[in-house]
């Protein structure tokens, strides 16, 4: 079924996220790729869309019921994103909608599916076409201990896809991406948005949810994250933490089922015991490495390689070796 149309949510549209490139890569295997943007598309972003084979961009132009143009932060609220996606599906007669698996995108996905009576799969780790041509999503659940798959039985399928589901790859040949304005009427929200702040992304370190390598520190750091950061920088990795370390104020983002879910190529946990809540957010990682001074630490049950030792000794030495290896 190659005449399938696949819409990908592009938010933000001013800078490209790895998650968007992964979604384009998945979408190309399913059909014709089109993007939906909530704001003007940046020049560099457009070049990436062309390289990744995105045929067109539906650029939402929001107005309220009275016809006034809406350009505020409301555009990123799930109900508004859903209105844009549903409008784009109707106009493009699209079959599949792909979004990243962020909390906000999950809500937008649910409202989009509700508006279209579409089937919804949350947190897919893979998207493919089943034997009967229907869309199949695979999921890794229960802290990475079970693999499940599920097919969408409605005409339209809406899926949120986990980061690192595929390695992003440009199309065999670039395309000439068309931009088309998409008029969208913002639904009655009943909500007042007083402020919206987006945390600036650090330029030198990949974001936690997208990184190929994650180094996370826990209570065992006793508040000193310098060795964790040092090893992460040597590896070009993102830095994460356990929830306890974040509650102590030692770091700002934690890995786990209520924090960020990561599934990188390598996860390194230092001074983290491996509580079920934490495991839920990292157990699907390909290689799990732990550094812990307690030979009985539960994290050893789920890792591939571990050093029993003081993290303040082990991490700097590892960082130095890696820097030497990289030259």
């Amino acid at each position: 079924m190659t005449n399938r149309t696949v819409l990908v949510l592009l938010d933000p549209a001013t800078e490209i996220r790895t998650s968007a490139l992964e979604l384009f890569t998945i979408a190309r295997a399913l059909g014709t790729v089109e993007a939906v943007a909530l704001e003007g598309v940046g020049v560099e972003v457009l070049a990436q869309l062309e390289a990744y084979g995105v045929e067109s961009v539906h650029q939402a132009e929001f107005s309220d019921a009275a016809g006034h143009v809406v350009t505020g932060d409301e555009r990123h609220l799930p109900a508004v994103v859903a209105a844009a996606l549903a409008a784009a599906v109707r106009r493009a007669d699209a079959d599949v909608v792909l979004l990243p698996s962020s909390f906000a995108a999950k809500e937008a996905a649910a409202l989009t599916a509700r508006a279209l009576d579409a089937g919804l799969i949350i947190d897919a780790a893979g998207v493919s076409e089943g034997d009967d041509g229907r869309i199949v999503g695979s999921k890794r659940v229960f802290a990475g201990s079970w693999d499940t798959s599920c097919e969408v039985t409605t005409d339209v399928a809406v899926l949120t896809v986990r980061a690192n589901a595929v390695v992003p790859a440009p199309a065999a040949a670039p395309v000439n991406t068309q931009t088309e304005p998409l008029p969208v009427e913002v639904p009655e929200l009943g909500v007042t948005l007083a402020s919206r702040e987006v945390k600036a992304r650090s330029g030198d370190r990949p974001p936690l949810e997208e990184a190929a390598i994650v180094v996370a520190g826990g209570r065992g750091t006793d508040g000193d994250f310098a060795p964790v950061v040092d090893l992460a920088d040597a590896l070009g990795a993102a830095v994460g933490a356990s929830r306890d370390a974040v509650f102590e104020g030692w770091w700002d983002t934690y890995v786990g089922q209520t924090g960020v879910t990561v599934a990188p190529r390598v996860y390194i946990g230092a001074g983290i015991s491996g509580a079920p809540h934490h495991r839920g957010g990292m157990q699907a990682s390909q290689h799990i490495v732990a550094v812990n001074s307690d030979p009985e630490a539960p994290i050893f049950e789920i890792c591939d390689f571990a050093v029993i030792g003081e993290l303040a000794d082990v991490l700097p030495q590892a960082a130095e070796e890696i820097r030497r290896h990289k030259g």
Binding site: V136, W146, D147, S149, A306, I308, E310
Partner: peptide
């Protein structure tokens, strides 16, 4: 709207390689 096709337990991870730090752990 959706139909479950499959659910299977993941293969167990092979037992971890554990190294005790005696100065060379890093």
């Amino acid at each position: 709207r959706t139909r479950a096709l499959n659910a299977a337990p993941r293969p167990e991870r092979p037992e971890a390689e554990l190294v005790t730090d005696k100065g060379e752990g890093g």
